[in-house]
Amino acid sequence: MRTTNSARSAGRTVPADRLLAGMYLSLCIALTVWSVVDGFFVTHSDASFAGIFPLIATAPVSFLVLILPEGSMVGYLVSMTVGALINTWLVYRLVGALRSRMTRLVRADSTPHEQAGR
């Protein structure tokens, strides 16, 4: 009987680099959607600070929005998207490097103990 990919991967764990990068990207998407919905569909008696949270979450790349023409929603969304993607890639690479370094340290640390027990 042939198994599907989902059946084979059901027992596997997701590596930490993918998990953290995916969680970060999901957070950035949720914050940006919330900000856009708040800006278009919610009426406020004064200004809303909803747009600042995606800006902070995707900093420093998203600070490009500060040099764009005022009131440009497309520029805001582009800078949030670019900032989120670059930061997600950085999270993925840094956590992956940390995980591989920790794996090497654990292997190097366990080798002398195994040899001493022989």
Rank of each mutant, 00 (worst) to 15 (best):
V65E: 09
V14H: 04
L77T: 03
F41Q: 05
L68N: 09
R18L: 14
R104P: 00
T81Q: 05
L55D: 01
R2N: 07
V74C: 00
V65K: 03
L68M: 13
P15V: 02
D109G: 10
L20P: 08
L25C: 07
V82D: 06
I56C: 01
V36M: 08
S9C: 09
M80C: 13
L105F: 07
V74L: 10
R8W: 08
R104L: 11
R99S: 15
A59I: 01
V95G: 02
I56W: 02
G22Y: 06
A21N: 07
T43Y: 15
L90A: 15
V82T: 03
R2C: 00
A50C: 07
T58K: 03
S72E: 04
S48M: 04
S48G: 13
D17N: 13
N5M: 14
R12P: 00
M73K: 01
W89E: 07
A116L: 12
F63L: 15
V42N: 05
T111K: 14
S48K: 07
F63R: 03
G96F: 03
S100Y: 08
L85K: 00
R99L: 04
G51L: 05
G71I: 01
V61C: 01
A7P: 00
Y92T: 00
W89V: 14
V106P: 00
D109Y: 12
F49P: 07
L90G: 04
V42E: 08
S6L: 15
D46S: 14
V14A: 07
E70C: 01
R118V: 09
V61G: 02
Y92W: 15
V65S: 09
A30P: 09
S6G: 09
T103Q: 15
Y92L: 11
L20R: 05
L105Q: 11
V33Y: 02
R104Y: 06
A57P: 08
A108T: 12
V74N: 00
A21D: 04
P60R: 03
S26M: 11
P112D: 06
G11M: 11
L27S: 05
G39V: 03
I67C: 06
G96L: 07
H44Q: 03
V65Y: 14
R18F: 14
S48R: 05
R93G: 00
G22P: 06
T81I: 02
V36N: 02
I67T: 14
I67R: 13
D109L: 13
T13M: 06
G96P: 05
G39S: 07
A16N: 07
L90C: 13
I67W: 12
S79F: 05
V33M: 08
R104F: 07
Y92D: 10
R2H: 06
